[in-house]
């Protein structure tokens, strides 16, 4: 069986990778960061979060970190996750793909300026 193509990433995978690009995080912190980074537009519940984390661990995009330096282990029950080389590469590939799409949209003058008007 051929390996499942990673790109394009699903929204959940993309946002989790993006949250982990800021450093090792535990599940709830990832959820908070995704909510913050998307201004609440992408809301991830526990079912989506841990289902996606499980698949990302299996695909080698992230790993579980046992001892995380610099992060207070306020609760020993929490597990921390870290981006792998493959995960970072997937995030960069996805970023390039999105950038290319954005360039095409800008070229067609379909992107709104920050004041809300279309170019």
């Amino acid at each position: 069986m051929t390996e499942k193509p990673i790109i394009p990433l699903t929204q959940a995978v993309f946002h989790i990778l993006l949250a982990l690009s800021e450093g090792d995080q535990h599940g709830y912190r990832i959820m908070q960061l995704v909510f913050k980074n998307t201004n609440g537009r992408f809301r991830m519940g526990p079912g989506t979060l841990y289902g996606t984390i499980k698949r990302m661990l299996e695909d080698g995009l992230i790993i579980e970190v046992v001892n995380t330096e610099g992060i207070p282990q306020t609760d020993q029950r929490r597990r921390y996750y870290r981006l792998t080389g493959k995960g970072r590469e997937a995030l960069q590939d996805e970023a390039e793909r999105i950038n290319l799409l954005a360039e095409q949209l800008r070229a067609k003058k379909l992107v709104r300026e920050t004041d809300g008007s279309t170019l």
């Binding site: 535990h26 599940g27 709830y28 959820m31 908070q32 909510f35 609440g40 809301r43 526990p46 979060l49 841990y50 984390i53 499980k54 609760d75 029950r77 929490r78 597990r79």
Partner: peptide, 22 residues
């Protein structure tokens, strides 16, 4: 799945309820 993630899921749901997220 439960063996691996259940403890964390319970903590996360509990935190969500405490913080009112989302």
């Amino acid at each position: 799945f439960k063996q691996r993630f259940m403890g964390e899921m319970i903590l996360t749901i509990s935190d969500m309820q405490r913080d009112g997220l989302p």
